[in-house]
């Protein structure tokens, strides 16, 4: 039977939603147990949140001073030390999981599976390749399965559980060659998190300037939506890079994705293919985004954006 270890992602205060979606992937393995490892200095709020996730057997709160702002080089030896009691080790395919898990897999001497989209068996998984233009089914060799989970492919689990939280301390070689300095967050503004938002309003090169992006923000606020952007808009300096959606940015799966002035390069489409409904507004009727859009409107976004905001119910937050 499978015993799954899920590596929690948190910022010391809040458990990231990606953890819940990774637990959902763990459940798809039909496992005997699912333990969630929370690496922290001493804080246990994220551990308490992890204990409420349905399907979780135990939460392992791994306390260590170096786990305050842990870097991959500090986390990987801890993950690999814990891994020996499990058949599967899963982490979300966020920048956190992508940084840590390959390092842990290498310490364990096993391959790593990136971006699981579907569980087809204990050792058989489907994952995207070539920017999502093909899906490969692979079978991992005998040994511990170490994998990251594409969070957009799994729905968060309910939070009605009550797993015990066990404090543990690990004996491991803690490296000092890597020092965390700081994080400069750029998002915020009270908008929903891009990777968990129901609705996302996205702008591309067609917005033409940073100032014009205010039209995107205005519509997003009317819809209670998160804001994202194409690489072109990020490179042009219209928005910060953590709003980029695509093969090398964030992969999202909102119920509704509205794309304004985005042509739809394959690298961008890789980030939105799992969206429920895609709406595209573009003045070029031949833009590739229309090949995947459920609803398309050929028109000038500078007319459509304000008109659409006006047409929406005004009581939305």
């Amino acid at each position: 039977m499978s015993k799954v270890l899920v590596i929690a992602e948190h910022d010391g205060e809040t458990l990231n939603l990606s953890t819940s979606r990774t637990v959902a992937c763990a459940l798809a393995l039909g496992p005997e147990t699912i333990d969630v490892a929370v690496f922290a200095e001493a804080e246990n709020k994220p551990a308490e949140a992890a204990a409420r996730l349905n399907g979780v057997t135990r939460v392992l709160l791994v306390e260590h001073a170096a786990n305050r702002n842990p870097v991959a080089a500090v986390l990987a030896p801890q993950v690999s030390a814990l891994a020996k009691d499990y058949t599967h080790v899963l982490a979300p395919a966020t920048t956190f999981g992508k940084d840590v898990l390959p390092r842990a897999a290498a310490l364990l001497g096993v391959p790593q599976v990136s971006d699981i989209m579907r569980v087809l068996g204990r050792n058989v998984f489907e994952r995207p390749i070539y920017a999502g233009n093909a899906l490969e089914t692979i079978e991992t060799p005998p040994g511990i399965v170490v994998a990251t989970v594409r969070t957009a492919s799994f729905k968060a689990v309910a939070e009605t559980g009550s797993a015990p939280v066990e404090k543990i301390s690990l004996d491991f070689d803690c490296p000092t060659h890597t020092r965390f300095l700081r994080v400069e967050g750029s998002s915020g503004g009270g908008r929903p998190d891009l990777q968990s938002a129901r609705v996302v309003v996205s702008g591309g090169r067609g917005l033409a300037s940073k100032e014009n992006f205010d039209l995107i923000y205005a519509l997003a606020d009317r819809l209670g939506a998160a804001v994202s952007a194409s690489r072109a808009a990020v490179d042009a300096g219209f928005v910060p890079n953590d709003l980029q959606v695509g093969q090398t940015g964030k992969i999202i799966a909102p119920e509704l994705y509205l794309a304004f002035g985005i042509s739809g390069a394959i690298q961008h489409l890789a980030g939105i293919k799992d969206a429920g409904t895609i709406v595209a507004v573009n003045k070029d009727p031949d833009a590739p985004i229309f090949e995947v859009a459920d609803i398309g409107l050929v028109g000038d976004l500078f007319e459509v954006l304000p008109a659409l905001a006006d047409a929406l119910p005004k009581d939305k937050s």
């Binding site: 391959p111 490969e136 692979i138 079978e139 991992t140 060799p141 609803i295 398309g296």
Partner: peptide, 19 residues
């Protein structure tokens, strides 16, 4: 040992939308 490739498939096509 590496992972074994069992199959490669095109992604499910999205239903053609409307304008």
């Amino acid at each position: 040992p590496e992972a074994r490739l069992l199959k490669v498939a095109p992604p499910p096509k999205r239903q053609a939308g409307r304008k």
